[in-house]
Design a protein around this nucleic acid. Structure first.
Lengths: 406, 406
DNA sequence: CGATATTGTTCGGTTCCGGAGCAAAATCAC
DNA sequence: GTGATTTTGCTCCGGAACCGAACAATATCG
């Protein structure tokens, strides 16, 4: 039950019913392909006549294609329908502090090319570097005209409406325009979003059917920073000024370790990769020299997990403590939002067998009901790169999303 | 941008455009009344012909009424439109541990009668007591036929879909059916919800126009328990198993005071009325004898605030500490959801001049951006009873809400 | 008193849903 | 082998709603 926003509503027109039903049909094909028109009519509880009309339109727009007829026990053999993915390309870009990844993929997430390069230090340099690489990769695959758009994942706060990067502490950029110049340089639509939201979108749009049935979940990302993509009622929660989901900076201990954000005891200060490594090395996270020392040490969380598995008690303790604090953070998410499930992404998931009991224990202790205590916690692999998958989802989502009505 | 739920979608039919546009018109009248048809047509950016058609239907259904014509500088004088409230009654019920309030109101929130009585100990007794009192109050006002429904606010977790009260620690009831028996006994539709959600709904539907333009906010309630009603995109967030918004049981200090829920250091254990009073009296909140001692002391948070204002340093300290912890809780809400504004309700708001600087300070320290730090914190008065206003909103909301499409 | 402005109604054209009927293409029964 | 049956997919037509244009009603201005 939604209140109508009287400042920003959308009237229904003559073509609204068609737009809505067309989109429902498209999504049902996407989730049940291959599927016949008659089967679609049964699922939608409408006549086969209407399905024919809707599908004819979708075929004409190149959103679906008709596969071969298949055998059935009796009666006329149906022609199966599929979402068309051939020649519908997406350019996915994942910008990180040190390196940027660029992938060419089809709209369903099948990767066709991948390259990485050092992230330029200035926004303008990034845009021109991206533009030339995108032109090259599209030319190489000889079908620029079929590219549906560019998905750009970038660390920091993004204003989804205007496409501006408001603030990126990691890159050191503030209030720069990225979407418009890149769109003008390439002639392609550009979607831009931050990491956790992109990861959540990837789960929504590229996931398997069964595990993503409900549109209420949280994707918690644990990398150098800690953040979350929150989905409620099938919609991303961006917040009033684009900072929803910043669970990394909720306080766990009012007088805990100092965080890079300036406050004390943030979830991120206890559980980020940097925090875990600093704990192992006995360094203070927010001290000026720590960052360089961590780089010099050349140690990753993956290495740390290997050491823990081969008998390094200090490494195991560092990981265990991260798990405990992460459990506290997860229990907050459960209490605040009660999502249907929580995905956890990051290198730390390689130690899932170690940390899962700790997470479960804390959630179980804090949850108010048995159902909340049983909230599924699902580790997500670091490879394939979930942010690149998210970049693909950024372009796919508008094609499949419900039209705005009322 | 919303994903279509392929298990629970709603097709657009022939009448969908009309349903949508009718509801938009109704809401615009509600927020801009009195308003003429021509003005409505300009706001909706449609022809006056369509407005005539929509309004004729709304007048016929008794949702609107036509006021007198008014003077305008030139041209034909318009007939103004209003939402009809006369003879459209709502029964609002607020069930609390000790006493239950029952009010008769019109659909816009104007109260016409109010009575309170001791809450029966058993669900069946509550239902029959309510049924007989509702019959009496409706008979007394001689227009039972015009009652739009019953709004019932009850502490605990409510399954909005089935109308079951899943668990109410305060009342000691588990998994009881309330909606159906009350609906059968009175012949009226019954809406049931818990306190924080009802308070949030009251803000959405009964608030003044300017302050409730955006549909992204949180209503934090601080009574014997602490909870929150969360609204995102104009929709209440209920969570997957009806426990979203339980900010009362997020941990502030992993080894803080024991909470009544069993865990340690919950927001509620630091900031509820019981916690504040226990702190002042030097009692341990979760100790078995505390509850009775608090009742024996006969002290309320209002009394405590009065003592603080008249020089009781211990009282001031107890309130100040509650303010500090509440600030920590509010800063979590800001980080997690970034709402456009946060309402705070409860007796503690009588000391707003004392606690507001503490809240602001903590939010300012924790917020990641200037906009998030500036999130408006709005104290809400305890009187008129916000839960009773919420009960009215429970009945009003379905009448004005957007129809579900796709 | 006619010109102008504004409100509210009426009407016909267009779009799309939705049910019924029908052709196409297979299997089943005998 | 042949008609009955079943299933798929298409076509057609009535009805509902939007939407632009024309028109009647009612005021002020010069």
């Amino acid at each position: 039950m939604r209140k109508i926003d009287t400042l920003n509503f959308k009237l229904a027109t003559r073509s609204t019913p068609r737009d809505v039903n067309r989109q429902i049909a498209l999504n049902l094909v996407r989730e049940h392909q291959p599927i016949s028109r008659a089967d679609l009519a049964r699922r939608m509880e409408i006549g086969r006549g209407m399905v024919t009309s809707l599908i004819t339109e979708l075929l004409g727009d190149g959103l679906l294609y008709e596969g071969q007829t298949v055998d059935v026990p009796r009666g006329r053999r149906p022609k199966m329908l599929w979402v068309r993915v051939r020649d519908r390309l997406v350019v996915a870009v994942d910008v990180r502090l040190s390196r940027t990844s660029l992938a060419l993929s089809d709209i369903a997430g099948t990767q066709m090319a991948l390259e990485t390069f050092t992230t330029p230090l200035q926004p303008a340099a990034l845009v021109s570097e991206l533009a030339s690489r995108i032109r090259r990769v599209l030319d190489a695959h000889g079908m620029k005209s079929r590219c549906e758009g560019i998905g750009l994942v970038i660390p920091g706060m993004v204003d989804h409406a205007t496409g501006r990067l408001l603030n990126s502490p990691q890159l050191g950029w503030r209030d720069v325009e990225v979407r418009r110049p890149l769109a003008e340089a390439t002639g392609l639509p550009v979607q831009i979003e931050n990491g956790p939201i992109a990861c959540a979108l990837a789960q929504m749009w590229l996931g398997k059917r069964a595990e993503e049935a409900s549109g209420d979940f949280v994707y918690l990302t644990v990398f150098d920073g800690v953040g979350a993509g929150v989905v409620v009622n099938g919609q991303i929660v961006r917040g009033h000024s684009n900072t929803a989901g910043e669970f990394g900076h909720i306080p766990l201990m009012p007088d805990g370790p100092r965080c890079l954000c300036g406050a004390r005891g943030c979830l991120e200060a206890h559980t980020s990769n940097l925090a875990t490594l600093a704990r192992y090395l006995g360094l203070e996270l927010a001290a000026p020299a720590t960052r360089q020392r961590l780089i010099d040490a050349g140690l990753t969380v993956g290495d740390l997990i290997n050491r823990a598995r081969t008998g390094d008690a200090k490494a195991l303790a560092a990981i265990t403590e991260t798990g405990r604090w992460l459990g506290l953070g997860v229990s907050m998410i459960v209490s605040a939002l009660n999502p249907a499930r929580i995905y956890v992404g990051g290198e730390i998931t390689a130690a899932w067998d170690i940390i899962e009991p700790l997470l479960r224990e804390e959630v179980g202790r804090r949850a108010l009901t048995a159902m909340a205590a049983a909230t599924p916690l699902l580790p997500q692999p670091v490879s394939p790169n979930p942010r690149l998958r998210g970049a693909i989802a950024l372009v796919a989502a508008p094609i499949f999303a419900a039209p705005q009505v009322a």
